[in-house]
Design a protein around this nucleic acid. Sequence first.
DNA 1: TGTTAGCACTCAACAACAGAGAGTGCTAAC
DNA 2: GTTAGCACTCTCTGTTGTTGAGTGCTAACA
Lengths: 342, 342
Amino acid sequence: MAMDARKFRILQAIIDDYILTAIPVGSRTISKKYETGLSSATIRNEMSDLEDLGYLDQPHVSAGRVPSAKAYRLYVDQLINHGVIQATDTQGVRNYFDHRARQMEDVINHAAQVLSGLTHYTSLVMSPKGVEHRIRNLQLVPVSANSALLVVVTDGGIMRDTVINVGADLEPDALYAISRMLTERLNGHTLAQAQALIGGAKGGHPQNQALLSSVMDFVGEVDAQGGKSKLALGGQSNILNFPEYNDVEKAKNFLSVLETKDQLLKLLEDHGEMAFTVRIGPETGIPELADCSLVTATYTIGEHTQGTIGVIGPTRMQYSRVLSVLYAMGQQLTDLLRQDKE
Amino acid sequence: MAMDARKFRILQAIIDDYILTAIPVGSRTISKKYETGLSSATIRNEMSDLEDLGYLDQPHVSAGRVPSAKAYRLYVDQLINHGVIQATDTQGVRNYFDHRARQMEDVINHAAQVLSGLTHYTSLVMSPKGVEHRIRNLQLVPVSANSALLVVVTDGGIMRDTVINVGADLEPDALYAISRMLTERLNGHTLAQAQALIGGAKGGHPQNQALLSSVMDFVGEVDAQGGKSKLALGGQSNILNFPEYNDVEKAKNFLSVLETKDQLLKLLEDHGEMAFTVRIGPETGIPELADCSLVTATYTIGEHTQGTIGVIGPTRMQYSRVLSVLYAMGQQLTDLLRQDKE
DNA sequence: TGTTAGCACTCAACAACAGAGAGTGCTAAC
DNA sequence: GTTAGCACTCTCTGTTGTTGAGTGCTAACA
């Protein structure tokens, strides 16, 4: 026995109904609500087959059937392959971005708000991250007599800055001279290269040695973190709107995962060349998210820099809608941030 | 009938027990667990009085008594006035800050983690905010041919930076010259003064006019936001550990409040000259937090810059412990950030 | 051979109910 | 003023039916 067109149609109806209602669907429901032209008995037989094939689960013998992760996977694959992404959300998303958002961080946060507002799920927005940052500029801004703020600007945007100790009592002009020198030497190089170059430039004025060493440390740190992405969350508490999370214990697990952002970042970063990634239940690899799905999309700024946005919700997620909202948001962010950048 | 020493002792025992167990306290419990030397009947009479005085509530006739907000208020006032803040936590807190945290934001986030880890409540950490920022330095870092990063450094720390459009095609050295000029003129002035000064400096090279205007805009923005504080949260999901939040609806309300940070910021900023503020239940002014308490403490960096840390939990909070942990954390942050600064 | 009506069976969900237990208020005695 | 005793209240828990949705199977039908 194998999957045929009729089984698939029935499975789809079951999934649609379950996504809507969150209650196990019975044969009678399908036979009546969806005009299949089949009696409940026939549906029943098909459902039994679908269960044997692993597409349906039965919570208990006298309940209806519930789609399995395998079923959602089939459903989503079909959705993506047939490109059923509605462009209608594009305008909707755009409306929320009327005002000029200046700071990267504000944009990220705002995007998360909008995303969770539109989908009613929990949203994740990761700030753009370059695969390889090339240095554009490097500047020391005096802060006090013996400390300075080191600002590293790369093509991927502004690296985070840090206060470093400039051993000697340096004049602003001296700092500027060093900055110019550093910029000239390092401009266009990747962070890793830069680090090596500074390291190699030993010698010179010994008073500057400590300073250079600090700069090198920071550049290395930035590189190691890969320009550690910021992660904004939105609508964390939305998960509590879903009946499957009426169990406080489950809700707590879910929220705990959101609090340890490292795991999430790893998950968000891990997409191949895909514009969209859908991870269903166990596919997330995180036990606490065993009955959640994570849908992500990427947005791109410039050649080598891209960020990820995503939505987490119960496995019975409105995939179609989520995908189109993510698509629209990705477009919007690409536009918005590129415009800001150049 | 008024409050006397014995009533107060009994009330204190009730509060202690309720904080521990979260179940209504009966007269027999007090009589046995706490050696009062009184029988349950006597306690019963006193409890009846305490209820009349508004210090106790009774969920229903055959349950024990529960402390009212008024009772907690009395309890906390006594705690604070008698300075029962244990120094023992200081070392505990310090242990968590071994590694050198560089970035302000990391410190804030880490502090929130530690705070919620130690108390098991939800924690709030607000980044330091100056009452009056005085400019130390102002620098334009070239980013691309016609845009630059404006960095404003004040005595309160590093202001957020922004990319502005420099109309003309300016050489790095020209930008530096402008930066020097601006720094010289504005150094030591407050942001508001600075804005006026730039505005007054009309004339000069018309090509720089647009640039100056951008700078002025940003300085004004920064000032308007008062250097908009960052807020880090920790242990949001901790609230679900408490039986009073087994109701999903209540939990959702609580978490929703945490998501709209504006309200929280206002609450955190609003402390008089107090080192500690304790808001119990309705005193928070936020209906959703009617059965929560918020304890805050301030930490200070330099003369005019201070931040706030806080803990939110159920009204039956371990006030004594929370106060001492907050005290220790305040000290630690003061140390840590001052050290970073100079 | 595929479809469908009919029927017995299963099991969660709900309501009703009884009993236990914790706690109170009151009274009377100490 | 304190306390023992007692009747009373009310939540909580566990039990027991009852209901209803849904299934699987069988037999009849096209």
